[in-house]
């Protein structure tokens, strides 16, 4: 069960034009930055990207947008990106905005083998248009389908060669639920260790969900909103 690949380039070698990718991270936190760099260098186009945000102009998914590699974004919040705004307003880019909890839970459902979920988020709003509504115990819920993604690309803090993953702090965010949801899941990690080095009680994503793993070198870990207080 050795899932180690040489790096991002090998990990993405069978991603094709027009595929649907999930990308972990919240803003730039917990972003699979090495795999995104490889995608940006790959020339793969017409991608549908499911990710909470769309990166900034010169980092994260913003790099793929700048190269016009993205056909459609499925996100909950897409501020902080001028190129994104330009492509959206000019009609080059299709965008589907969905509530953040719905986004996370549609990933979770895919990883749990559940075809759809019911959530109250979006009831009475334009998000509900065209969707099935069911009433349970006097309250309306929207039916939202599990995601179907060709690849999930996540970033973890530590992983072992069997694909078991551990995340660090709020860089966890969407990564565990997306890791569960891809037909093929690629994990990039800061530290790659041998089986047995991670405590089984502390593993967040069991290796069964992960198909390829590699160690990324020199993480940039940009901060989007550096906010501090005085001593």
């Amino acid at each position: 069960m050795n899932k180690v690949v040489s790096g991002a380039k090998e990990a993405i070698s069978d991603i094709k034009n027009g595929m649907t990718l999930m990308l972990g991270g919240f803003g730039l936190c917990g972003l699979p930055e090495k795999t995104i760099l490889a995608l940006a260098a790959s020339g793969i186009t017409d991608l549908t990207c499911i990710s909470n945000n769309a990166g900034v102009d010169d980092f994260g998914i913003g790099l793929l947008l700048r190269n016009r590699q993205v056909k459609k974004m499925i996100s909950s919040y897409v501020g902080e990106n001028a190129e994104f705004e330009r492509q959206l307003l000019s009609g080059e880019l299709e965008v589907e905005l969905i509530p953040q909890g719905t986004l996370a839970t549609r990933c979770m459902a895919a990883g749990y083998g559940i075809p759809a979920i019911f959530t109250p988020a979006g009831i009475g709003t334009e998000v509900a248009e065209g969707k099935e509504i069911r009433n349970f115990n006097g309250k309306d819920y929207l039916m939202e389908m599990a995601f179907d993604a060709d690849f999930a690309i996540v970033k973890a803090w530590k992983g072992d060669s069997m694909g078991n993953l551990v995340y660090r702090s709020t860089a966890r965010n969407f990564n565990p639920v997306m890791a569960m949801a891809g037909k093929v899941t690629i994990a990039e990690v800061e530290e790659l260790v041998e089986p047995g080095e991670l405590d089984p009680d502390h593993i967040h994503t069991p290796g069964i969900y992960v198909h390829r793993i590699f160690k990324g070198e020199g993480y940039e870990k940009r901060i989007e909103q550096r906010t501090v207080r005085k001593r």
């Binding site: 919040y77 501020g79 905005l97 509530p99 909890g101």
Partner: peptide, 9 residues
């Protein structure tokens, strides 16, 4: 439009 984030949930 920047999106609803978690507000609708």
């Amino acid at each position: 439009v920047k999106g609803m984030g978690g507000a609708m949930d």
